[in-house]
Design a protein around this nucleic acid. Structure first.
Length: 236
DNA sequence: TCATTAACAGCGG
DNA sequence: CCGCTGTTAATGA
């Protein structure tokens, strides 16, 4: 078994389905989006879904008071809004473009047409959907069972696994991530995230600069998470 | 006890 | 100037 490192930072949904993707995108329309624009909003009904070719999109759930739970941050070669391809329920989340992006718009009708000719296109989408389902399930697990410190530790492990780069002083997370981002990803308050990060720095597990983190002692970070997570590898 | 909200000050790009 | 961070006080489960 592998550790549950599926990161909310989603970077490729395609895998071995290059040909299927090309066929699908032939019947899609490309649009350019500026940063800050919404692609769709929670509650909207639509018969179109999206493929992010290049750029960055945030998928999140907002409440009336403005608080936000980030479900995923997606970069190039990923699908989003897939629910609209399959049923008539409104979108359950909001998709916001974070930087200038090129996005293909695919209609449900076009999808069912190309699936009839090339059924493996359906498997491509199922593959993307299952990966997101797993990602969401792991977030539900953390929200249900982990305390604040472990939630921060786990998101750090996921991010470092997905985005980590070896540096002289440790594993560096090569993305601009604020304490606020971590709070919205983990369902914690910013104060709590800052406190945990300060503690981890005090005990020499990581170094932080503004918007940047370096893990200097990965092993002890893993130990802080402790056992008990499903899918976690046993080292006997 | 642990975490949250609100508020504010200092830092720095 | 504005966004990010560190910190405190008050409040709640």
């Amino acid at each position: 078994m592998k550790k549950s490192f599926d990161s909310p930072w989603v970077r490729d949904n395609i895998g071995d389905y290059r040909n299927e993707l090309d066929l699908l995108l032939k019947s899609a329309q490309m649009r350019a989006y500026k940063g800050g624009q919404p692609v769709y909003i929670q509650g909207e009904r639509s018969r179109t879904f999206y493929f992010l070719l290049r750029g960055k999109v945030k998928i999140s759930i907002f409440r009336e008071d403005g608080s936000e739970k980030i479900l995923a941050i997606q970069e190039g070669n990923t699908f989003f809004g897939e629910s609209a391809a399959f049923d008539d329920q409104p979108y359950f989340a909001t998709a916001t473009v974070l930087e200038p992006s090129e996005i293909y718009v695919v209609s449900r009708d076009a999808l069912s047409r190309v699936i009839r000719e090339t059924p493996s296109i359906a498997f491509m989408l199922m593959n993307a959907l299952i990966r997101k389902m797993r990602l969401l399930a792991f977030q539900v697990e953390d929200l249900s069972f982990l305390d604040a410190q472990k939630r921060v530790v786990h998101i750090l492990l996921k991010l470092v696994h997905e985005l980590g780069v070896e540096k002289e002083d440790g594993l560096h997370i090569q993305k601009r991530i604020t304490h606020d981002d971590l709070a919205r990803l983990t369902g914690l308050s910013r104060v709590t995230v800052t406190n945990v990060l300060n503690y981890l720095e005090k005990v020499n597990i990581l170094k932080k600069r503004r918007c940047s983190l370096t893990i200097t002692d990965h092993e002890r970070l893993v130990n802080l998470l402790g056992g008990g997570l499903s899918g976690e590898e046993e080292n006997l």
